[in-house]
Amino acid sequence: MEITFTLNGKKTICHIKVSTTLLELLRETLNLTGTKPGCHEGECGACTVLINGKSVNSCLYLALNTNGKEITTIEGLTKPNGGLDEVQESMIKNGAVQCGFCTSGMVLNIKALQLETMQNKKVPGSGIKNSPNRNEIKKWLEGNLCRCTGYVKIIDAAEEVFNKGK
């Protein structure tokens, strides 16, 4: 079947098998390999992408349900001139990247939190505006496994993004 969606700012039309997951569509058909397959079962978050600004596991998302929606992958976070998003910058600066296999998912999930706090002015379940605290960041990242960093630097990187916004 045919689906139409906005991918990293560009209108995209794809012909897909209905049972294709978004992860397969991105990696195998569209060759956007920045989205990583860590488990294919919703447990690791390496495949995280943004759908209408919300972070979602692309391995458990049917590609056909992206019809009419806006998808952002890690490739879409980099600016056209090659400049990086502030979340990416912060990850690098804070030493939050080791093997990097979890990084795309981490970056996008932190981005989602940033978008969330900007829109809702409320971090789920906390009532805190704009700047989630360290524990809220940890909770938000619970679905992104990382085997290399022990998460500390990743949490630091996220914290820095929010502290800057203060």
Partner: peptide, 16 residues
């Protein structure tokens, strides 16, 4: 109910 939802799986799963 809010707590149960908040402790279900992960941020990404809760979105869907």
């Amino acid at each position: 109910l809010q707590q149960a939802a908040h402790n279900l799986a992960s941020t990404q799963i809760r979105q869907v």
